[in-house]
Design a protein around this nucleic acid. Structure first.
Lengths: 342, 342
DNA sequence: CTGAAAGCGCTAACAA
DNA sequence: TTGTTAGCGCTTTCAG
């Protein structure tokens, strides 16, 4: 019939120490699994006390002392895009496996939020940061003093680890696929945000045009934001050209799917009238009509690899210079492309 | 030409105090926006010092003292399902608005991970927990001593706030819709995990059958796990019945979409041969062929509402008893249902 | 309005 | 193998 304490505050290491008849240092040692320097019997007594009191370590206090939080922050531009969900899963699974928690910061294409998250990471002394920067620069990242990994392959971030896909090569291959099908007038729905994102695709497109001596027609490139509306607008613009393209490459699947839907609304047949190829291979890509042909990225794996880099860097086991892990893309042929009827 | 310090440790409140020529208490007061008890001039001097040193508050130390972390944990069973992505976004947006960070725990239908996350929340002294429990019981939740909100409406959790959808009513309405189209033999792909999830749908189905004097045929109910394979197997089973149903209700869209795909593989026409209605209205539901008719849930709003509850409870501004916010479902008619040809 | 001092719960030398 | 001690950086009485 014991009444509960009024302040139901959790027991501390001191309570455990008292209950076990040892000092708090000893309890601490047991907690840290310092099996070498504590007698088995003592260790058992402590374990018993811990169980009896329902003691749960206070990670805050521990962190203050050790300056390690075992928490990392992931900053992605758009968690609603299944692409980032997958990357996140890969990162989380790997980080958790090494005892880290992951705080997800959803940038939502908002530059302000992005830097806000960086501040949060700093104030909370997170052990690491994984980010796909849309506006943040290398300087700011380095200024945090926190080990960082970039999700994606970017220029302008020397000395920072990067894990991503070979978007340049993937874009090239997607275009080559279209070319092989006889397409010579290929539109490009160019998703873009700020300076960096999506630039590799642009370069690849430009290089492809030059290399194959296609007519450089800037009206074939439509720059849009990375969302559904962007994809629709992109397709609309392309189709209303006096001489519309016979095929279209879109920066990602969100854009491609939206483009396909707009085409359908406009009575333009896919792939009969226009072929479409996307990039990423997100979950919904397989369920559209026709199913979307797309350049698949290894999303989950990118997350895992990024986590690996981060873990090593936090442990100080990484070389000074930035490392890159570039995973190849792979064409997934489904039903949105057909030979040119030109 | 000043060389960087060897330990690039961040400046503390003490450095700021020295630079501003005041005591650390004063700095602390300024930091907390205690505008009442510090002279404007002093406050400015402190502000200047903070800026000059690039000081960033150490949230860890602060948390140790105040026992507040401004961090909550979200535990969802399956982040890969766009349903949970949306709920998460709602929760995050609202929590962040009130200064909280959200740590996402992806349970992945793994009971072990679920309780692991609970431990993490405890050790890190998170201020709150938002969870859709698959295995965890009320007792364990309460034992954490952390303010909690349940995502979804469940029995067996008195005194805990809940925000979710009216799944029972939604299921009833979905079935009524099918009934009105003339369907009398309605299959049920019953997603299930452990004791609780999805039970409201089962009850609704049973009640519906009874109320409309339909023949109670247990072979029309196929219990499956909440994943794609489950949906495929469910449909397969239903279609291979000697007398297959003319319509099917699936516990969620993941299941419904998979069921539709399996039907197509089997040469069974949707909605010609069999009508299908799902639940949730996730993003891909609009892009299938035919587009999926489904009972939409207010995902984002559920997240927001849960956050609201949590914020109030953390602030101690919530009544002792558990509150519920039950958001209605809404039928989204697309193309996967047709009148029975019976 | 400001400062001095006492901790929050834990870890890590250093002694014993 | 164990205990003692000194903080980690901050908040919060309590004096002044």
């Amino acid at each position: 019939m014991s009444a509960r304490q009024d302040p139901p505050s959790r027991p501390t290491i001191i309570h455990v120490a008292r209950a076990a008849g040892v000092s708090k240092s000893t309890v601490s040692r047991v907690l840290q699994g310092d099996t070498a320097s504590v007698k088995p019997e003592t260790r058992q007594a402590v374990a018993r006390a811990i169980r009896k009191l329902g003691y749960e370590q206070n990670a805050i206090a521990s962190s203050l002392r050790t300056a390690r939080t075992h928490t990392v922050m992931l900053i992605a531009p758009d968690i609603a895009n299944p692409f980032w969900s997958e990357v996140t899963r890969g990162l989380q699974d790997t980080m958790e496996h090494s005892g880290y928690s992951v705080v997800v910061g959803n940038g939502d294409w908002d530059p302000h939020r992005e830097s806000q998250f960086l501040k949060t990471a700093q104030r909370n002394r997170f052990d690491g940061i994984a980010i796909n920067p849309t506006i943040i620069h290398c300087r700011e990242l380095r200024a945090t003093g926190i080990p960082t990994v970039i999700l994606g392959i970017r220029d302008g971030f020397p000395q920072i680890d990067m894990a991503g896909s070979d978007t340049y090569r993937g874009t090239l291959d997607a275009l080559a696929y279209l070319y092989k099908m006889g397409h010579r007038r290929i539109g490009f729905i160019y998703g873009r945000y700020n300076t960096d994102p999506g630039y590799a695709r642009f370069q690849a497109y430009a290089d492809f045009v030059k290399r194959n001596h296609l007519r450089a027609d800037s009206s074939l490139i439509v720059e849009v934001p990375f969302d559904r509306a962007g994809g629709e607008r992109g397709m609309q613009t392309l189709l209303s050209l006096s001489k519309p393209p016979t095929a279209v490459f879109a920066s990602n699947d969100i854009l491609a799917i939206a483009a396909m839907q707009r085409a359908a609304q406009l009575g333009v047949k896919v792939p009969g009238d226009v072929s479409i190829v996307g990039m990423d291979d997100i979950y919904p890509a397989a369920m559209t009509t026709p199913p979307l042909t797309t350049m698949a990225k290894q999303k989950y794996e990118v997350g895992c690899q990024a986590a690996q880099f981060l873990i090593e860097r936090i442990a100080g086991k990484a070389p000074r210079e930035g490392r890159r892990c570039v995973l190849p893309c792979r064409l997934v042929e489904r039903g949105s492309c057909a030979p040119s009827r030109g």
